[in-house]
Structure formats: C-alpha cells, structure tokens
Design a protein around this nucleic acid. Structure first.
Length: 402
DNA sequence: TCTGGGGTCCTAGGACCC
DNA sequence: TCTGGGGTCCTAGGACCC
C-alpha cells in the first residue's frame, strides 16, 4: 500500500520566529520584509549566517556563509541575534498542532517534521487537502509560514517541501518524479553536498535525472554505500519509516570557538572543563553513561584534530570524564594556536543495562552526589548559577543553550 | 577577505582473537 | 627468509544534515 507522507518545513525558521517575537514586543518593522539575517557575534568570531529573510536571499546571501561576505553582498543588511528559547517555544507550538493530524510524527529538527498520515485521512479528504489545512492553520494560529511536501515517502516529501518557497504546498508523487525532480541540479538532492558535487559533475552527472539513469552498480563501484543511497534517492526510493519514538542520542558533545586563539594549556583546560560540565550535565539529564571520551581542537589554520579514549567502565561523572579529557588533550595538543575546543562522549548506554566489569572500581558515591546536587541547582536556578572556580568568564563567553 | 554548534553515519587502518 | 582468513573493536578523519 502506498504511504501518505508529509514534510513540514518552517520558512526561514530562526528569522521568522525572531520576527514574530519582535513584533510581539512592539517592533515596527517585520524583519521578514527587509534584507535581514540571524547571525552569530562577529567580534567573538562566531560570525556566520544562521537564517536569512527572502529579501536577503535575493542578494545571494546563503545560510552558513560568513556575515562578512553577506554584508558585502548587501550594505543595508540588518543582523539580529538568535533566541533559542523563543525557537523552542514556536517549535513546540507547531508540533502540538501537527499532532492533531496523526500520531506517527517525527521531529526531524527544530523546524522540520515528518508526518505519516496514511491511516489518518478522513473520508472526503486527501493528503493534499490536509497539507493545505496545515499550511493555513500554522500561519493563522502561530503567525509564521511553512512549506509542506506531499509524497509517498520521506525523501520525496522532503524534496517537495524544498521546491518554491515560502508558504507553499507541493506534491511529488511517483509519476511527477521525471518532471518535478529529475530536472533539478544534482546538488539539490538530499545528501549531495559540497564535496560530492564536483565528483558527480566530473562523470557527467549534472541533474538528478542524470544520476537516476545511471546503473546502480556503477554508483556503488564509485561511491560505495553512499553511491547506493544517492542513486536510490534520485530514483525516489526511500523505505525508511516515520519514527515517532524519540531515540536516545548516540553521542553528546559541546564545542566552542574562542574569541581569541589560545596557546596556554591552563587556559585551554579551563575551557575544556566548562565544556565537559555542559556535556556531562546533558549526559545525566538523558540518564545515560558514556565509555568513550573524545576531544577535538581546531587550529588557527582551520585544521581539525581529535583523539579519543575508551574506558573499561561506563560513567557519567564530571570528574572522571574531565580527567580523561585532560589526558586526551595532552596527547593531542602540540602547541599550535587553538581556535576551537570540543569535547564529546560516545558509546552511550543506559545504567540499567550496564555490564559489571571484572575490573569495576567501586563507585565514587561522593562524586555522584556532588554531580547530582550541582545538576539540581542548575535545574532550579539556571545553568550558570553554579560555576566552578576560575571559569566564570568562560561561561559568559559561551552561549549555553538548552 | 571569512569560515557556529549540534548531531549521524561511513571509511580505512591497525590490534587482536580464533 | 615466508606466512591464511574471518571477525570484532578501536581510532582518526571526514561528509553531510539542520
């Protein structure tokens, strides 16, 4: 049986949400109607475009590019800060509306959802009618616009929602693939990015149709598993289910670009501590343990290095994870100026399924109690209410979200 | 010129085991 | 001097997504 899948995508999400938040607070201009972007702080070297208005898009401004470039493209460009608290609020409000249409719904990101409405289409209605209803209701009730893609699977629904924007509903049924999708440049295909585009062009693949018409074996030979995936996507094949069960994360990490390059190991360790505290706090909030700790650095020259270490016993202890991270950093760091530091925990497991290691060390109950107490205070009074000595400035330097 | 931060998945080489 | 094959796990790096 053919499925009925919708993909709902908020138009210029961060910018739209900032716009309605500003209007709510008495702003006179709607920043959706002028060349504007949401961006990081250039002075703190976080200056990239996170979202752009439609007028800004007309100047050729793209998401992810340095604000410095964006300004050169448009001298009157207005720049606004992100507001994740508001974004979460609007994301949840939208999700709540979408839940009225099906219970098979997946939050793909803060501003995108997949809905499987196959078994939830009332008599007399169609998938397209429901898509239009959703589009109108969100605009009316929440004040921002969305694109909705209507298709028999997730990939096609996502491709459809990416057609003309904003505030549009598009279908991409099987029979529409040749006319609506194969004519597009291959870079428009989901998963074809900056690096694979030139490789595809080199072998004469310029449109999604070019890719679809190749032999699958040829793509596998040239690109391995990735080749199989993009060949299937080009042919509109995607059997993946809309997954309504939020899964446990596979990894948790925090990283920060520093306002200035650091070479002083003590300073680098201070930042590492702040990052480790964020990461382990989130790890405990998920009620998970980790057994692999990795540290990442980015140099002044934008070279990335990482090292990791696997522990015999899973843990969520800030102390153990920080001590490990420090050791990993020591073997990683060769003295070059550091632009970014990151810490990440992998191989996450639930305490219930924890294997008792032969080499298990007695649990440090005192340390566990301390972590728990600090978490409680952060929960109650805000993340930055409790800071370890010597890292106050660092917390201010990094915008903690969540 | 300037280049965020949070993730997922894949690959390739090496260690180690049977 | 030469020297298997299959499997798992670990590590470092990278592509891609929003």
């Amino acid at each position: 049986m053919e499925r009925k899948i919708l993909h709902v995508d908020v138009n210029s999400a961060f910018l739209s949400w900032t716009a309605i938040e500003m209007l709510k607070n008495g702003a006179e201009v709607d920043i959706r109607t002028i060349p504007a972007i949401i961006g990081g702080d250039e002075e703190k070297r976080k200056g990239v475009v996170l979202a752009k208005s439609m007028p800004a898009k007309k100047y050729g401004i793209t998401t992810g590019e340095p604000i410095y470039f964006a300004k050169q493209k448009c001298h009157s460009l207005q720049i606004y800060k992100s507001n994740f608290k508001a974004y979460r609020y609007y994301s949840n409000a939208m999700y709540k509306i979408l839940c009225e249409y099906t219970n098979k719904i997946e939050r793909f990101s803060i501003d995108e959802c997949f809905l499987d409405i196959t078994n939830f289409i009332p008599a007399g209605k169609t998938d397209l009618i429901i898509a239009n209803e959703i589009n109108k209701r969100i605009k009316k009730e929440l004040g921002f616009t969305v694109n909705v893609g209507v298709a028999p699977n997730k990939l096609l629904a996502k491709m459809a929602s990416d057609f003309e924007k904003p505030d549009k509903v598009h279908t991409l049924y099987k029979e529409e693939i040749p006319t609506k999708m194969w004519t597009l440049p291959v870079s428009d295909l989901f998963m074809v990015g900056r690096k694979s585009l030139p490789k595809l062009q080199k072998i004469g693949i310029n449109t999604i149709g070019d890719l679809a018409k190749r032999k699958q074996e040829e793509m596998i030979k040239l690109f391995g598993k990735f080749g199989k995936v993009i060949w299937e996507y080009a042919n509109g094949i995607d059997l993946s289910e809309v997954n309504s069960e939020p899964e446990d994360p596979k990894c948790i990490g925090n990283s920060a670009t520093l306002p200035e390059d650091l070479t002083n190991i003590e300073k680098i360790e201070e930042v590492l501590l702040a990052l480790t505290e964020q990461t382990t706090y989130r790890l405990r909030k998920h009620n998970l343990l980790t057994s692999t700790i990795s540290v990442q650095i980015r140099t002044k020259e934008f070279k990335n290095y990482s090292h990791q270490r696997t522990l015999a016993t899973p843990t969520n202890s800030t102390k153990i994870i920080y001590e490990t991270a420090k050791e990993v950093l020591k073997e990683l760091y060769k003295g070059e100026p550091v632009r970014l530091i990151g810490v990440r925990v992998d191989k996450l497991t639930s305490p219930e399924t924890e294997q008792i290691s032969l080499f298990d060390t007695p649990k440090n109950e005192k340390q566990q109690k301390l972590d728990k107490a600090i978490d409680g205070l952060k929960e109650k009074y805000g993340y930055n209410s409790v800071t370890r000595a010597g890292k106050m400035q660092i917390d201010e330097m990094m915008d903690f979200k969540e």
